[in-house]
Amino acid sequence: ERLAYIADHLGFSWTELARELDFTEEQIHQIRIENPNSLQDQSHALLKYWLERDGKHATDTNLVECLTKINRMDIVHLME
């Protein structure tokens, strides 16, 4: 799945992406607590919560915009 692929590449950027996707610091902290050992797991959790929260509004376009804002064009190019 594309989101899994994106999550695998996010690394430390997942928190920046979370902020761009309008997650609160508290929500970010919660994701860290729930997935303490792996940045990859934290990234996967973030994208899963985003899909659950935004439903049909959780679009590739939205994700590309946010990834561009945090200067992760490498991931944007991987999505093309």
Rank of each mutant, 00 (worst) to 15 (best):
R2S: 13
L3D: 02
L3S: 14
A4Q: 11
A4T: 15
A4R: 12
A4W: 06
Y5C: 15
Y5R: 02
Y5V: 07
I6S: 01
I6R: 01
D8W: 02
D8I: 03
D8E: 08
D8Y: 02
D8P: 13
D8G: 06
H9A: 06
H9K: 03
L10V: 12
L10T: 02
L10E: 02
L10Q: 01
L10W: 02
G11D: 09
G11V: 05
G11T: 05
F12W: 12
F12N: 05
F12G: 12
F12T: 11
S13M: 06
W14M: 02
W14N: 02
W14K: 00
W14L: 03
W14A: 01
W14E: 00
T15G: 10
T15P: 13
T15S: 13
T15Q: 07
E16V: 06
E16Y: 08
E16S: 11
E16W: 03
L17M: 06
L17K: 00
L17A: 05
L17F: 15
L17I: 11
L17G: 00
A18S: 04
A18W: 00
A18D: 02
R19T: 14
R19N: 13
E20W: 05
E20L: 08
E20G: 07
E20Y: 07
E20V: 12
L21E: 00
L21R: 01
L21F: 15
L21I: 03
D22V: 04
D22I: 05
D22H: 12
D22R: 10
D22P: 01
F23S: 01
F23R: 00
F23C: 04
F23H: 01
F23Q: 00
F23K: 00
F23W: 02
T24I: 05
T24S: 11
T24Y: 14
T24H: 08
T24Q: 13
E25P: 13
E25N: 15
E25W: 08
E25T: 09
E25M: 06
E25G: 08
E25I: 13
E25R: 07
E26V: 05
E26K: 14
E26N: 11
E26P: 07
Q27S: 13
Q27C: 08
Q27L: 10
Q27F: 12
Q27D: 03
Q27K: 14
I28E: 05
I28Y: 04
I28D: 00
H29F: 14
Q30C: 10
Q30P: 00
Q30W: 04
Q30I: 08
I31F: 13
I31A: 01
I31M: 04
I31S: 01
I31Y: 02
R32P: 03
R32Q: 15
I33S: 09
I33V: 10
I33T: 11
I33C: 12
I33Q: 12
E34I: 10
E34F: 03
E34L: 09
E34D: 06
N35C: 09
N35W: 10
N35M: 11
N35R: 11
P36E: 10
P36D: 11
P36R: 08
P36M: 12
P36L: 08
P36V: 05
N37S: 11
N37I: 12
N37G: 11
N37E: 13
S38P: 00
S38R: 07
S38H: 05
S38K: 05
L39R: 06
L39P: 12
L39G: 06
L39N: 07
L39A: 14
Q40H: 15
Q40I: 06
Q40V: 08
D41N: 11
D41S: 12
D41Y: 04
D41I: 12
Q42R: 06
S43Y: 02
S43D: 02
S43V: 03
H44S: 13
H44L: 12
H44G: 07
A45G: 03
L46V: 08
L46A: 15
L46T: 06
L47E: 01
L47T: 11
L47Q: 01
L47C: 05
L47P: 00
K48M: 04
K48G: 14
K48E: 11
K48Y: 07
K48P: 00
Y49M: 14
Y49R: 06
Y49E: 04
Y49A: 13
W50E: 02
W50G: 03
W50Q: 12
W50L: 13
W50R: 04
L51A: 05
E52Y: 02
E52F: 10
R53M: 06
D54K: 15
D54F: 13
G55Q: 13
G55R: 05
G55F: 05
K56H: 13
K56E: 15
K56D: 14
H57W: 09
H57L: 07
H57S: 14
H57Q: 14
A58K: 04
A58M: 03
T59R: 07
T59F: 05
T59V: 06
D60Y: 05
D60R: 08
D60E: 10
T61I: 13
T61H: 10
T61V: 15
N62G: 15
N62C: 14
L63E: 01
L63R: 00
L63H: 01
L63I: 15
L63G: 01
V64E: 15
V64P: 03
V64Q: 08
V64I: 13
V64A: 11
E65G: 13
E65Y: 15
E65W: 03
E65Q: 12
C66D: 02
C66Q: 11
C66Y: 03
L67E: 01
T68P: 07
T68K: 10
T68M: 07
K69W: 03
K69G: 09
K69M: 08
K69Q: 12
I70T: 03
I70E: 03
I70D: 01
N71Q: 07
R72G: 04
R72T: 02
M73Y: 14
M73P: 05
M73L: 14
M73Q: 02
M73V: 14
M73T: 07
D74L: 00
D74W: 01
D74H: 01
D74T: 01
D74N: 01
D74F: 00
D74I: 01
I75M: 15
V76E: 09
